[in-house]
């Protein structure tokens, strides 16, 4: 054996042989076969992802949206009635129950002046609001003045948000 040669060990030869094993290509149409199996899986994942996303967005809206509403939009005049059939007007910071209207339920008013010319059979809740009962107006239930606590403001924010969402959904369905 000359000096510029050396003998490869048996193990090295085995390793070399293993390293030179030929490629074995996957069968024709392998990728297509897998992709054909994916839609059901993708659908399942997409469906889960969609609901998860919707849930996350809703939770985020509640968590961030409510305080944001309170901070940015909390002073907006608004009202909340438990009787959906009565016609109540809101203009320029004044909530009016017109003469002849009967509200069979409670009424909450935020950041506004409530003018009652009709009849309210339930209670009235006033948050940062004033009450004016017109000559023909009547409030049968109790009148409560709500404290200006964060809870009141949060409730107002949530109610406001609910109204916005309902309005948005109605618009989208039209």
């Amino acid at each position: 054996m000359s000096s510029n040669h050396y003998c490869k060990s048996i193990h090295e030869q085995l390793e070399e042989g293993l390293g030179s094993l030929p490629d074995i290509p996957a069968p024709e149409g392998f990728t297509a076969a897998i992709l054909a199996r994916l839609p059901r899986e993708a659908e399942r994942r997409a469906s889960w992802r969609k609901w998860r996303t919707a849930g996350a967005v809703a939770a985020l809206m509640l968590l961030l949206g409510s305080p944001l509403y309170v901070l940015t939009d909390g002073a907006r005049p608004m009202f909340e009635s438990t009787d959906p059939h009565v016609s109540i007007q809101l203009r320029g910071g004044v909530v009016t129950l017109p003469a002849g209207e009967v509200l069979r339920g409670d009424l909450r008013v935020y950041n506004a002046e409530l003018r009652v010319a009709g009849r309210i059979e339930g209670a009235v809740y006033l948050a940062a609001s004033k009450l004016a009962i017109k000559p023909l107006g009547e409030v049968v239930g109790e009148v409560h003045v709500l404290p200006q606590s964060w809870l009141t403001r949060l409730r107002q924010g949530l109610v406001q948000m609910g109204m916005e969402v309902r309005s948005y959904v109605r618009g989208a369905l039209r």
Binding site: L21, D23, I24, P25, A26, P27, F30, T31, I34, L35, L38, A42, A46
Partner: peptide, 29 residues
């Protein structure tokens, strides 16, 4: 992100290696 094309590329990149490995492990195509 839902790009099926990207997954197909991933399959194309690894299918021969994985197939060869499993073929030599199982001995059956």
């Amino acid at each position: 992100r839902g790009e099926v094309g990207a997954f197909a590329e991933l399959v194309d990149a690894y299918k021969d290696k994985i197939f060869a490995f499993l073929y030599r492990m199982t001995g059956n195509r």
